[in-house]
Amino acid sequence: MGDVANAFFNGEIFKESIWLLVKTLPTVFEVLILGLVCSYLWGLILSLMRLSRFRVLRYITGAYIDFFRGLPLLLLFVFIYYGLGTAGLKIGALVSGVLGLTLCYGAYSAEIFRAGIQAIPKGQTEAARSLGMTNGQAMRYVILPQAIKLVVPPLTNEFIAMIKDTSLMSVIAVPELLFRAKEKMGVVANPTPLTVAAIIYVVFTIPLIRVAARLETRRRKRPTGGIPASGLTPEAEMKLLAADIAGQLPKGGEGH
């Protein structure tokens, strides 16, 4: 028993590791914030292309989304950093990280945005069009403001997965939590740094998990009344939920 405790909770190493790992947080936050902004913007653009009037655009976007949802993110990181690097296109580790997150999470969030947009009743577009708005104006002023409110809970879930996936960047030498923890583990020949890293991850993810759950309940409890004031139909709710689950699925064994 003492051996196990010493392996994972060695007091001395624990203390040393805390500061060492906390120092990586600015890097993690930088990658996360850039990844969040870029991937959601890219996802929104993709979703609009996916719903475009032009068939070719729809097909190309659909293929892109399927491809990146099906690709392991780890492989993508390695490909961008080492693969392209070997081919002569050298990209820095941090930029590779953000690019990988954007390509992959853009595809996930595109599906969520699409479900959100499609969950808005058709009558909303019709009302907007009947007032003389163009398709673009209807989307911008009527559909998107409602759709975005709807996709906040599933996008929060995406963000939680993204936090965890930053650990994959340890293979491309981004000096983040897991990278430094493994380094330290090698030096001290003791896995306690991993314990510290684990604690830091859950300190950030658990509150977000609670927030996402709460947002989800609040959306479900929203009063709809008997009259279709364009509240969501149960069918649209299911579609949105399905997209959320679909967004989570390809990350293999990372359910929460």
Binding site: P121, G123, A127, P145, Q146, P228, A229, G231
Partner: peptide, 10 residues
């Protein structure tokens, strides 16, 4: 004007 009003709920 529509049967289901279609006001903008936001």
């Amino acid at each position: 004007v529509f049967q289901s009003f279609n006001l903008f709920p936001h």
